[in-house]
Amino acid sequence: MVLYFDPGLGAMITQAAIAAFAGFVLFYKTVIATIKGWLGMKTQEKDSFDEAYSNEDEDDKS
């Protein structure tokens, strides 16, 4: 018995593998952040989006 994988199936398997990896990474980061929050070890890291919004708020006030 010979298994045949057409290009569409190969692309679908690749897409599923990439999505599973991305989902794992996001889930892991969320779980670790939640646990750190419970333990009081959460550090507030500024994100580039945070800086952009704070600059936008300052522009609105002037």
Rank of each mutant, 00 (worst) to 15 (best):
D57N: 06
D59P: 02
A17P: 00
D50W: 01
F24R: 01
P7K: 05
S48E: 14
P7Y: 02
A17I: 13
V2S: 13
S48Q: 07
A11P: 02
D59L: 12
L3H: 12
A22Q: 14
M12Y: 08
A52N: 01
D60Q: 12
K36D: 14
D47E: 15
K36R: 15
D59H: 01
Q44C: 02
T14G: 00
Q15Y: 00
V31S: 02
Y4E: 10
K46E: 13
M41D: 06
E56Q: 08
Q15A: 02
E56L: 07
I18T: 08
V2R: 14
S48D: 09
F49K: 11
N55V: 00
E45N: 05
G37A: 06
K42T: 12
F5I: 12
A17K: 11
E58I: 10
F5T: 11
F27L: 07
I35H: 01
M41Q: 13
A11T: 15
D6M: 01
T30P: 05
T34M: 05
A33F: 07
F21V: 10
K29C: 05
A33C: 03
T34N: 03
F21E: 09
G40C: 11
K61Y: 10
V31I: 01
M1A: 15
F24T: 03
Y53F: 07
D60H: 08
E56W: 00
A17D: 11
Y53D: 04
A20Q: 06
F27A: 08
S54P: 00
T30L: 12
M41F: 14
G8M: 11
E45L: 00
D47H: 12
E45A: 06
T14N: 11
T14F: 04
F21Q: 10
A17N: 15
G23V: 10
I18G: 04
G10N: 08
L3E: 09
T43R: 15
Y28V: 09
D60K: 15
I13A: 12
F49C: 02
K46R: 10
T43M: 09
D57A: 12
G8T: 13
A33Y: 03
N55P: 01
E45W: 05
Q15R: 01
E51G: 15
K61C: 02
S62D: 09
T34C: 03
I13K: 12
L39D: 05
A16H: 04
M1L: 13
K46S: 09
G40N: 07
K29S: 09
A11N: 05
Q15L: 01
L9E: 15
Y28W: 15
A20T: 10
A33E: 09
L3V: 15
V2K: 13
D50I: 00
L3T: 13
